[in-house]
Design a protein around this nucleic acid. Structure first.
Length: 655
RNA sequence: GCUCGCAUAGCUCAGGAGGUAGAGCACUUCAUUGGUAAUGAAGAGGUCUCCGGUUCGACUCCGGAUGUGAGCACCA
């Protein structure tokens, strides 16, 4: 006799051990059919799993995230089976689930082509139609190695051999295909209604760039074709919002061969850049930062002293001149220490918060560059806090308050926090790390927000917190960071005089809120699809005439806008109003002001807000007040078109 | 850096047995002075990314370089 408790709080009693499938069947035939897996006391299992004692049991279907994962994982197996039917020499390796889909890596003599993908998809449909049952079995390690060796699956053999010998090895078989896998999997291959192979690319075996390159095929799977369609639509939407595309369309910046990975900012793009920078200047100033500026070119010896040369000399641009060896700075911190080092500092000077919009160059690997998101020349909203160990926690808390306020103004409410703790290779005593990690942990807890622990991912000189923004496409964009550094200040001889008159080395906190301006602007452009909130829009308002008669009136209004501090222009071209409206809508200008004879006579403007919202005729004063209110809102609560097609909340737009 | 693509007018893209090219938009000129997402007409615009090779002849085929895209690796 055993009792299972179901998620709705009810219980069911069974006379003898029962499988998940049987439990589902006893609840209802619909659920039995939909069951993909089960959850027993929180652990995900196959539906063939037999429950032998009292437990909390849930039937997992594709209506929940876990079920979808099982579905996708099984879909990866179907793909592998299809590949081996078509290409018997292809060896299977690993095939995990990723966001929205899955991939599987194969070793094969040549790369797969798009035509191959189509054929593989066909073969997958065939396997689905065959409705093969998927069976789990356990094998002894030696038998498993023998089995896969006989099949010529050398990568699988390597995987099996790398699994600790005390762990049971489970395998899943469907038809002629068998794969080492932890599971769970769907009970049969007939469960798939909507899947698609999306792309193919190389990937290193075991993620190691020194090892051979495999062929990775990406795919996606969904409970039904409608959701698959929606997903593909989201991908299209993301492509439309690609900041490289928007940058071209809105004439914000360009790249060219002669300066790979470095941005040519055009007037409108540079306006956005400047607006953000002056916002940050003001925000940092209000938060006790002292802005400084340090050299671009610094003798290589400083980078040797700071320890960067040893680790990153390959990634630094260098210059020979005057019989001297310089590096173009890849980061600002050593220079900030030089500023700190001028004049004897007292504990009373701490915390000292130095900030710099410092232009840095890094020789990034060619394959890693990506529009504005990863460039070789960028400017960080960089800052270094020199403080005592006791001040770490309050300084981190201070920074986070600042950071969240900044993000809110840019229209990001959801921030993911991650704490990276000591890596294996590190400097500094363990007790120092204990205290620093504790300080970060406490600062994180004090925010009342959720955060994630990433063990072992800290920098060699100290633990760090990273802040990722959730953009409107649901993607995470890592922007901010704060890192504790026990190392650099000491290496570069920074000291302060403590209360007891002893000389001590300050702790350094490296921090940035936006990260790099380049990347952050890329994130903004994609988040807003180019429709920047008015405070960031390079052109906030365009005044346009209907005929030449109103040219003077337009000029006057343009001047009024400028006097009030708005970025306004007038468009007096001899073109029809429809064309001007169209062009400025396409340039995503938030405020369009039309002046015809009627408005000119009454000293008014006809106002249209971006997106085709006609606000009617109003006085110029009222119009300015509205723009003013719009600017003052920053990006807070700015309506953002969500992927999947939620309509804009135009009410908020027009207010 | 690695694997596989791609590179044609300012932009988006066609094209061709290997015989030096075309569209739409943008641009220029002319006409048009108009009411909220494209007024009409005409014109100009190209070493087909660069360097080699094959060939009577290469934008087209082959090799390399550079840039770029997807993914991997990297990211102080």
């Amino acid at each position: 006799m055993l009792t299972v408790r179901l998620p709705d709080g009810s219980s069911r009693a069974y006379d003898e051990p029962v499988s998940i499938a049987e439990i589902a069947r006893s609840i209802g035939p619909g659920l039995a059919k939909a069951a993909l897996a089960g959850r027993v006391d929180g652990e995900l299992v196959d539906i063939s799993h037999v429950v032998e004692a009292d437990a909390a049991v849930a039937i997992v279907t594709d209506r929940e995230a876990d079920g979808l994962e099982v579905l996708r994982h099984s879909c990866a197996h179907i793909m592998a089976q299809a590949v081996q039917r078509l290409f018997p020499e292809a060896q299977v390796t690993i095939g995990p689930v990723i966001d929205d889909g899955f991939y599987y890596d194969f070793a094969y003599s040549r790369p797969f082509t798009p035509e191959d993908l189509a054929a593989i998809e066909q073969a997958m449909a065939e396997i689905v139609k065959e409705d093969l049952s998927v069976e789990r079995q356990l094998l002894e390690r030696d038998d498993a190695v023998q089995l896969f060796r006989d099949m010529g699956e050398h990568y699988k053999v390597e995987i099996i051999e790398s699994i600790p010998s005390d762990e049971p090895l489970s395998f899943y078989r469907q038809g002629e295909f068998i794969d080492l896998c932890r599971g769970p999997h769907v009970p049969n291959t007939g469960k798939f209604k909507a899947f698609k192979l999306t792309s193919v690319a190389g990937a290193y075996w075991r993620g190691d760039s020194k090892r051979e390159m495999l062929q990775r095929i990406y795919g996606t799977a969904w409970p039904n074709s409608k959701e698959l369609r929606l997903h593909l639509r989201r991908l299209e939407e993301a492509e439309k919002r690609d900041h490289r595309k928007i940058g071209k369309q809105l004439r914000l910046f360009h790249f060219q061969e002669e300066a790979p990975g470095m941005v040519f900012w055009h007037p409108k793009g540079w306006t956005i850049y400047q607006v953000i920078q002056s916002y940050m200047k003001q925000a940092q100033d209000a938060n006790g930062y002292l802005e400084i500026n340090t050299p671009q070119l610094v003798d290589f010896s400083l980078w040797e002293k700071s320890g960067h040369a040893a680790k990153f000399s390959e990634e630094m641009f260098t210059v020979e001149s005057d019989n001297r060896h310089y590096a173009i700075k890849p980061m600002n911190c050593p220079c900030h220490v030089q500023v700190f080092n001028q004049g004897l500092k007292s504990y009373r000077d701490l915390p000292m918060r130095l900030a710099e919009f410092g232009s840095c160059h890094r020789y990034e690997p060619s394959g890693s560059m990506h529009g504005l998101m990863r460039v070789r020349n960028f400017v960080q909203d960089d800052g270094h806090v020199f403080c005592t160990e006791e001040q770490i926690q309050s300084e981190v808390a201070h920074f986070m308050d600042f950071l969240f306020a900044v993000y809110r103004d840019f229209g990001f409410d959801e921030v993911l926090l991650r704490l990276s703790t000591r890596p294996e290779k590190r400097v500094g005593a363990d007790e120092l790390w204990d205290r620093a990690e504790d300080a970060l942990r406490q600062a994180l807890d004090a925010t009342g927000r959720e955060w994630e622990l990433v063990p072992g991912e800290g920098a060699f000189y100290g633990p760090k917190i990273e802040y990722s923004l959730r953009d409107c496409m649901g993607r995470l964009q890592q922007c901010g960071t704060i890192q504790v550094d026990f190392f650099t200040a000491e290496r570069l001889g920074a000291q302060y005089v403590a209360e007891d008159n002893s000389r001590r080395t300050p702790v350094m906190l490296h921090r940035a809120a936006l990260g790099s301006f380049e990347r952050f602007i890329g994130v903004l452009l994609e988040h807003y699809g180019g429709e920047l909130p008015t405070w960031l829009a390079p052109v906030q308002a365009v005044v346009m005439n209907i005929t030449d008669n109103q040219a003077k009136d337009c000029k006057k209004i343009e001047q009024t806008l400028k006097n009030k501090g708005f970025r306004g222009i007038s468009d007096l071209r001899n073109e029809k109003i429809g064309l001007k409206i169209r062009e400025h809508e396409m340039q995503k200008t938030p405020w369009l002001l039309v002046v015809g004879d009627r408005e000119a006579r009454s000293g008014t403007v006809s106002v249209r807000k971006r997106g085709g919202n006609d606000l009617g005729v109003m006085t110029i004063e009222e119009c300015c007040e509205r723009i003013s209110a719009d600017v003052a809102r920053y990006g807070r609560g700015a309506p953002v078109a969500l992927a999947g097609g939620k309509p804009n909340e135009s009410e908020a737009l027009t207010r």
